[in-house]
Amino acid sequence: MSGTRATVLGVMAAAPATFVTLAVLLFAARELSGTTPLSNGPPRNVAEAAGGGEVSEVLRFLRDGQDPREIWLLRPEIISSTVTRATGLEAAIWSGQPLVELLDRRGFIADSATRHHLACLAKDIGSGEVAAYLSPGVDPPCATGAAFAILKERSQTVASPAR
């Protein structure tokens, strides 16, 4: 009888930890097979990568030829349900100054209108660090909320062009 009880206790000691190991292996196997369990999947374009702060993926998309100045479709879970059409540059504002600076150094923020729009967007979403980087030494003159409103409106317009 005590042997049976010992067996039961042995199973109780082993089962939960074994289950965890097998679950991790199953997860790994599924991921290796190309599915993405417990995840929203990899970013689909440079804007999604920028919005999600996945800098290494931004670099990969750039090398693949994607242009962060173009408007891209974003899934609602990347930034928010109100921002679903944005350029890679706009999306990068949500990730912070280092990524914006990286894109700037690569020459993607070439004209002052884009720089101004991005600075105002940064102010609208409360990213003072990015705004200060894009408009060093001066508080950019912006109509409060206007830059973000452009994004929201674009996202709500189904017919607006996006890749």
Binding site: E31, T36, L38, S39, N40, G41, P42, G52, E54, S56, E57, L59, R60, R63, E77
Partner: peptide, 14 residues
């Protein structure tokens, strides 16, 4: 190696 040859795995979510 870090960025192109062995890219980051999808970020966990939930």
């Amino acid at each position: 190696d870090a960025i192109w040859n062995h890219p980051v795995r999808p970020r966990l979510a939930g």
